[in-house]
Write a protein that binds this DNA or RNA. Structure first.
Lengths: 148, 148
DNA sequence: ATTCATACTTACCAAAAAGAGAGTGTCAAA
DNA sequence: TTTGACACTCTCTTTTTGGTAAGTATGAAT
């Protein structure tokens, strides 16, 4: 799934090992104002369309609106525009309008956008690695419910 | 923000470097069925409450329902129950009911839950590292809008 | 002359998510 | 005796979200 980043199992294993060995977290108390802000960013950034668009953009480099619409299947024009605007506002991508007819608008990721892709890649890999486990857990859970 | 994992800048830098140097991704085409499934998991798993609960759980180890409610501020009882059930169903945590009065129910993460925490940690760090950049981008964007 | 493509915006409407608040059963403390 | 804690569930209402469909401007192709 993380098409823009080949799964690097070795690095992941390394990461996990390091994380497992990590000392107990220093109980950081930080400005609740910032905490709210970061929560907000997570909420906005970690949604379905944003992540998928990010991926397509990372794969294709610069790409036009309707091409994006074709690649991100299932998305409506409205959601595409809306998500793109949000991402532009957050500085994840740049939108270039070529004043020609018919209109030509191109989108490409900024460094910030690319770095988010890299950060989120871990979650894609996790989902890929664990979707079977999750499916089994769900089946077990549902079966247990029906046994009453 | 990723309280359960101390930011490991060194490792992150290493990761980024490695990712930057990575060869172009092999254009993987995988079963669209699985793709949908993984998308679904991402959508469900990467939501606000799930991530915050995950964090609190990782911080506190085993913890009771209403204690959780106090730690995760702003959440309603309904959302707390609902999210916890989903997470249990997905195998992210285990729920232990002690049949005493008053009731005592404890929640703790499974290994799967912990691994998701580790995977998502990169996104928290990204958000922490970049929230100022994002704020500035937004201000710039909004200012540009008002200039017309 | 009509249609198509582009990149949208706007209006309307249905569905889903989420908040608020009351109810439940039991015991212990005030 | 009333109150409160616990861990919920249930219902009602509000808010948010997202889809559909139409409209817009322009020139080129049929």
């Amino acid at each position: 799934m993380p098409k823009f980043l080949p799964p690097d199992k070795e690095l992941m294993a390394q990461t996990r090992a390091k994380l497992a060995a990590a000392p107990p977290p220093p109980d950081d108390q930080l400005d609740p104002h910032i905490e709210v802000l970061v929560n907000d960013i997570i909420g906005r950034v970690a949604d379905r369309w944003t992540m998928i668009i990010l991926e397509v953009l990372a794969e294709n480099g610069e790409i036009r609106f309707s091409q994006l619409g074709r690649e991100v299947k299932g998305i409506s024009q409205k959601m595409l525009t809306q998500t793109l605007r949000q991402m532009e506002r957050d500085g994840l991508l740049i939108r270039t309008v070529h004043p020609v007819i018919p209109p030509r608008v191109e989108y490409k990721l900024t460094d910030l956008g690319l770095s988010l892709g890299a950060a989120f890649c871990g979650v894609w890999m996790w989902a890929e690695d664990n979707h079977e486990t999750i499916l089994r857990a769900r089946q077990k859970f549902d079966a247990a419910l029906n046994k009453d």
